[in-house]
Design a protein around this nucleic acid. Structure first.
Length: 322
DNA sequence: AACTGCCTCAACCGCCTATTT
DNA sequence: GAAATAGGCGGTTGAGGCAGT
């Protein structure tokens, strides 16, 4: 048996609401409330509208506490932050933004923030390789959806003194980009839909890609696509490190010496919204001092211009094999 | 001024879940 | 417990407005 329609579609008005209809609905709701039944409401109120349509109109437009107008920078950050944690749960996100509706937030995300994000990301580049760069953990215990393979990508920043050639997995073409000289290497975790991360299973480079961190004083073990960074000397990596990738698929992370790494055990990715993101421990840092808000298995993708710092001070794998 | 393409956002659709019968 | 119903939600659509040519 099919589902009964919520209203007689042949006898209800559709399309934009007129000011008269708005006034009628508003007057009725302010006097009587919903009566706990939206479906019966339009008849009682004298409206030739579907009950669902009335509900939507009230919730998204007529409610007195609705905030109209542009979103603030602060709201941007909240939306982005929450989206990174829970994905497109618009009603939940909207509940954290007084006066905003799920429809508002959804529209704003789809028309503005998503573009802002892609502009921050510029492009998604995977390390040149014939094989798929990365796949989700086969036996991951993550609860978040992981329907799309995650791709570690490399994105240089703007300060340049050379160039690198990368393989753009999206356009399937080589791209030459400047060597970054500001923050260092940027393995961007890029996925169209979601990225499953947990503190143990992170990401690996496929066979054929070696990550040489010798210049950092760290040890590299890649016999199982596993990278183990174990040296205290690794702290020599700095914000001024540069990245180079050669055509033998050898990723090197040279350093020109420098500062200590904060947040041992973490990789911080600059979300582009003013706070770095720690995908390894699935933590969101409000600032680089490490003000932590815990998250669970976040979804995000397409981030660019990442500031990443590897933990090099413990005898443990930073990047494990899937 | 006319045309075109893009953008915005209100509204709809259909699915899922919770509640009621 | 099953079926019916209503509420809630996210995805999508399309009309109208705007900017560029």
């Amino acid at each position: 048996m099919g589902r009964a329609p919520c209203c007689d579609k042949a006898n209800v008005k559709r399309g934009p609401w007129s000011p008269e209809e708005d006034a009628t609905l508003k007057r009725y709701l302010e006097t009587h409330g919903t009566g706990g039944n939206w479906i019966a409401l339009p008849k009682k109120a004298g409206l030739k509208r579907c009950g669902k349509s009335c509900r939507l109109r009230w919730l998204n437009y007529l409610r007195p506490d609705i905030k109209h107008g542009g979103f603030t920078e602060e709201e941007d950050k909240i939306i982005f932050s929450l989206y990174s944690q829970m994905g497109s749960r618009w009603s939940l996100i909207a509940s954290q933004l007084p006066g905003r509706t799920d429809n508002d937030v959804k529209n704003y995300w789809n028309t503005k923030l998503k573009k802002k994000l892609s502009l921050e990301g510029k492009t998604s580049l995977a390390i040149k390789n014939n094989t798929e760069i990365i796949t989700p953990a086969k036996n991951s215990t993550n609860s978040a959806p992981c329907s799309t393979p995650s791709l570690p990508c490399i994105l240089p920043k703007t300060e340049t003194n050379g160039s690198l050639t990368f393989w753009d997995s999206i356009t399937q073409s080589s791209v030459t980009l400047p060597i970054l000289s500001d923050v260092g290497y940027e393995p961007i975790l890029n996925t169209a839909q979601s990225l499953c991360l947990d503190p143990v299973d992170q990401f690996s480079f496929p066979a054929g890609i070696n990550m040489d961190v010798s210049e950092l004083g760290a040890n590299l073990i890649n016999n199982q696509n596993k990278i183990v960074l174990s040296s205290q000397e690794g702290s020599s990596i700095s914000d001024s490190s540069s990245i180079a990738i050669d055509h033998n698929k050898c990723l090197s992370l040279p350093s020109n010496g420098g500062t200590d790494l904060e947040h041992a055990g973490t990789m911080l990715i600059d979300s582009g919204f003013g706070f770095p993101y720690d995908p390894v421990n699935a933590l969101l840092f409000e600032d680089k001092a490490g003000e932590v808000a815990s998250t669970c298995c976040p979804n995000f993708g397409g981030f660019g211009y990442a500031d990443i710092k590897h933990q090099l001070g413990q005898n443990q794998s930073v990047i494990n094999q899937y």
